[in-house]
Every structure is written in structure tokens, then in C-alpha cells.
Design a protein around this nucleic acid. Structure first.
Lengths: 152, 152
DNA sequence: CTCCGTGCAAAAGGTTTGCACTGGT
DNA sequence: ACCAGTGCAAACCTTTTGCACGGAG
């Protein structure tokens, strides 16, 4: 059930259906971007996606990548990831899950825990309508703890 | 113990001591910025702080605000707050606590819960050194749920 | 007196927008 | 054909940087 290729194909089909059902054209740009983004575990910025997709589409514009990612957020196919940095990161995973954030390099890794998935919602119902939550652990990843190849 | 004015004074004294003990001068700019920032509950951006402090200091430069905030982070007196937006938000509260994030307007409110303060650290010790964590609830604040005065 | 901080202005990113044109459907 | 998407370039916003001056210790 967690076959990565099958999972990616399923997500892509779902995304293409969501676009079509709203009358939004499936362009080459969107197809390539979906292939890069859906199933990604690197919580990419728009720029990271642009770098990876641009070689496949001559003349690709930054604006297209930014606009497409926001479209995916609007359609509920992606989410902006909470991150301490000054750029926007996107997460294709919609199910509840958690994150390990390296304070040295900014990398984000997913962390699964059924116990953390079962926390109570906040008891402030009138003041705030809670939709979901994520637990964010901050610390240092293995690469940044290693003296060699330190990054700052 | 939770007297806001006393708490703010205590934090300010601690911050001034931290600066002095490192040989960093306590300028007028830093004093005013600390008064605005320490004890703040609005998780401000650098620009928000600039707007509030600039009227008190003729000629204040944006650069000073950005540099001072990063200095506070380096000294461990402030933290960058995880946020889905494209700007950096700062949090003067260092103790473990949690947040309610409005997806409509981006506002962040603190949320205290002793139960949430006692979650287990992730079981990946070799791959990631965890220092702390925060639970981020996403949803809609009261203001953004009210039809009138909607903001987006 | 010695650093470090500050202001200024320019530069560097990251992100958004207006417009003419292309391309899905 | 129609309507949305795209590329391009400019604009915009946030953040960083180099340098000369001024102020804290």
C-alpha cells in the first residue's frame, strides 16, 4: 500500500481530476510540476521546483511555478508548510503528520507517530476553529551535527 | 508570577545583561526594540517592529531592526517562529508552548497546555538531535470566521 | 580610545502583476 | 472559438551588505 510509484501515480491522477473538474487545463507545465511535486519529501520552495522542472520545459517562467503552486493550495492539493525561514515551502502530503526541522540547514523531514496523531484539539472552540495540527520538532539533523561538511 | 509588567521588566533586564556580558553595547535603538519586542504576543515580523519603533527614534533604519532581531536569535533571546508565510516572524517566548495559526489572516496566538508540554521526543536519536518542539494548530480565528470584516 | 552599531543606499532574493500571445478543451 | 495559462519584464516586498560616521563602554 505504500508502494511509492503507485502512490505517486494515484496522487497525480487525483490531482489531474481535480484540475479537470474545475475546468482548469492540464498543460505540459502543470504535468511536469505535478510529477516533480506530488510525492516529494523535500518540502520544496518554488525555486527548488523551478530548478528541477525548468530543464524539461524550455523557456519555463518562474511566474508559472509560483502561480501553479498557489493554485494547488487553493484547490486543497498542497499546503504551505510552517517553517522559520523567509521563503515559502510546500508540502504535498495532506494527511496529518509531523516534522523534524533542522535549525542549522533548514531541512525538514517527515515524522510519523500514531501517538502524535491522536492529540486533543485545543479547548477554545469559540475563539478558534481548528482544522488540523502538526507537531514540529526543532533540532539538528545528522549532517549538520557532523563536524565535516558543516554548513553554518 | 504572571504579572505582565513585572515579567516584561524581568525579561528586559535579562536581555540587557546578556548583551552586556558579551560586550555588546546597549544603544537607544536596542532598548526601544527590546521594549517593543519582549513580552509581545503578536509574533511580529521585522517590519511590524520597525513600524512601531520608528516613531520613537528619528531616522531609524530597517537594517538596524533586521540586524538586532538576528542578534537576539543568535544570543538565544528570541526564536524564529515556524509560519507558512513568506516573511520571518519572531517569538520572544523561549519556554515550550504551542500555537493557533489562522490560515486566513496569518495571525498566530499562543496556546498553553500542560498535556501538550509532555509529549515524547521522536525516536530517531541517531538521525536527529531534538531540542524542543511546538504543536501548531491550523484553522480560522474568530475574526476571520465572522462574515463582516473578512480579510481574504 | 576602541569597537561595535547605525544610517544610508545599493544590492540581492523572493514573489507578484499586467499584458500580449499560446494552447488546452 | 473560448477561456485560462504562459512567458516576459517590470514592479514590489523583504532582507542583506559595504562603507563612513557616531556613540557606548
Amino acid at each position: 500500500m505504500s508502494n511509492p510509484a503507485a502512490e505517486r501515480a494515484r496522487r497525480k491522477a487525483a490531482a489531474e481530476h481535480a484540475l479537470r473538474s474545475r475546468g482548469l487545463p492540464l498543460t505540459v507545465q502543470r504535468r511536469r510540476l505535478l510529477e516533480r511535486f506530488l510525492g516529494a519529501k523535500d518540502h520544496p520552495t518554488a525555486e527548488m521546483i523551478y530548478r528541477d522542472v525548468a530543464p524539461l520545459i524550455p523557456g519555463l517562467s518562474h511566474a508559472t511555478v509560483y502561480r501553479t503552486l498557489e493554485t494547488l493550495v487553493d484547490l486543497g492539493l498542497a499546503r504551505r508548510l510552517p517553517h522559520p525561514g523567509g521563503d515559502v515551502r510546500y508540502d504535498p502530503r495532506l494527511e496529518r503528520h509531523h516534522h523534524l526541522l533542522c535549525e542549522a540547514c533548514g531541512a525538514v523531514r517527515d515524522y510519523a507517530s500514531s501517538r502524535l496523531d491522536a492529540l486533543p484539539f485545543p479547548d477554545v472552540s469559540a475563539a478558534f476553529e481548528t482544522l488540523d495540527y502538526t507537531v514540529l520538532f526543532r533540532g539538528r539533523c545528522a549532517a549538520c551535527r557532523t563536524p565535516r561538511s558543516r554548513r553554518g
